[in-house]
């Protein structure tokens, strides 16, 4: 999976938890949480969405690495985003 493909899948998972958000406006280097007003339950749903899409086990301690869109893409690319 290329980084662009990973990015597309991450955005799709975000769309599941924030269907009303305009994700084209999302700044890739800023915290997703602040831009989309999501809470811990949304975050968990997002992580579960990533887990299902990428078949990767994400420990709770790694959640901070998923704070931004860029962070998500890097993390998933290096953790076998197949």
């Amino acid at each position: 999976m290329t980084k662009d493909e990973i990015r597309g899948t991450v955005l799709r998972a975000l769309g599941q938890i924030a269907p009303e958000a305009d994700l084209s406006q999302l700044k890739p280097n800023l915290r997703i949480r602040d831009q989309l007003d999501i809470d811990s339950m949304d975050l968990l749903n997002f992580v579960i969405g990533l887990h299902k899409e990428f078949k990767v086990e994400i420990p709770e301690a790694d959640y901070p690495k998923l704070a931004t869109l860029d962070g998500c893409v890097d993390y998933l690319a290096s953790h076998g985003g197949t």
Binding site: S40, L44, V47, P59, E60
Partner: peptide, 14 residues
């Protein structure tokens, strides 16, 4: 508890 659990089964304190 969450260390033992997979992503889908994790709990939040709420």
């Amino acid at each position: 508890e969450n260390l033992k659990r997979s992503v889908e089964d994790r709990l939040v304190y709420g």
